[in-house]
């Protein structure tokens, strides 16, 4: 497992990084933590001639945890997990980050890398859909904001242009009821099924609900329908069952070593029901 040869660049600004992407076109790839890309390169399923490392760009770091939360693309999953402000403002992030890979991988794996590369197995994309996050993209044409819910097009294909860099994710402080529930075979595995749920409540009734699922289609799945059926309910048995039914209409799992489609659908339902119950217990 030896990667092909490449030239290495470590720009110190986003503009310089974008410049390198413009210069080398599709021969260049951006690397953040590298824990998705490097294994692909070691298997020679990816062989970029130029690698643009973002670690030298200070502007891509930093976490703001006010009413609006902003996380720089190069913030690692470990940093996200340990951040006191985030734990208070959006505890669902830590709950999800804990379930990604293992400590060493989380030390290098970044928020930006996890959301930008479009691997349907990654956990943070569904979380971003659930949070209704926006991604900040910077490219030759300048800066633009893209809704996470419109970002994922196909496996490894996103709304990010080849010469753009995802610099940050941002979202409003989420509702109090939260859960990220994930079933996996072992530490280090992708989800067999995972569910991100946010619920806001008033007077014992759901006033806002957001549901997204990981690794149950070729892109992360935001299930608007599942959220909608929870609205106005008390998250009782019928409401949960209806939400699960609605979610089933939005996912499209494929068979792999984790199991056949029927199993994945079943587990997706169980996991979502558990996530809703846990989120509801926290509202």
């Amino acid at each position: 497992m030896i990667p092909a040869r490449f030239d290495y660049h470590r720009p110190d600004s986003v503009a310089a990084a974008v410049g390198l992407l413009q210069q080398h076109g599709d021969e260049a790839r951006v690397v953040a933590g590298g824990h998705s890309l490097i294994p692909m390169m070691k298997l020679r399923m990816a062989a970029p001639a130029h690698l643009v490392d973002l670690q030298g760009i200070a502007a891509l770091r930093g976490i703001e945890a006010g009413d609006r939360i902003r996380i720089g693309a190069m913030v690692t999953q470990s940093e996200m997990l340990a951040h006191a402000g985030l734990a208070e403002a959006a505890p669902i992030l830590a709950e999800a980050a804990r379930q990604i890979a293992d400590p060493q991988v989380r030390n290098l794996g970044t928020v930006g890398g996890n959301v930008a590369n479009g691997d349907p197995g990654n956990d943070l994309p569904a979380l971003m859909l659930c949070l209704d996050a926006t991604f900040t993209l910077e490219g030759p044409e300048g800066v633009r904001e893209v809704a996470a819910r419109g970002f994922y097009e196909a496996p490894y294909v996103t709304a990010r242009e080849e010469e753009e860099i995802l610099t940050a994710v941002g979202f409003d402080r989420p509702a109090r009821g939260f859960a990220y529930e994930k079933q996996k075979r072992k530490i280090g595995d992708y989800a067999t099924a995972a569910a991100a749920v946010l619920i806001g409540a008033e007077g014992g009734r759901v006033v806002s609900a957001s549901v997204a699922m990981t690794n149950l289609a070729d892109v992360p799945v935001f299930s608007a329908a599942a959220g909608e059926v929870l609205l106005g309910s008390d998250c009782g048995e019928d409401a949960v069952a209806a939400a699960v039914d609605a979610m089933q209409g939005d996912i499209d799992p494929v068979e792999d070593n984790r199991g056949p489609v029927e199993f994945k659908r079943h587990v997706a339902g169980v996991i979502l029901a558990r996530a809703i119950a846990r989120a509801w217990s926290r509202v």
């Binding site: 079933q183 075979r185 984790r258 199991g259």
Partner: peptide
């Protein structure tokens, strides 16, 4: 006896 095979047994 991984997850899906146990699930299949139960099913």
């Amino acid at each position: 006896h991984d997850h899906w095979r146990i699930w299949r047994t139960a099913r």
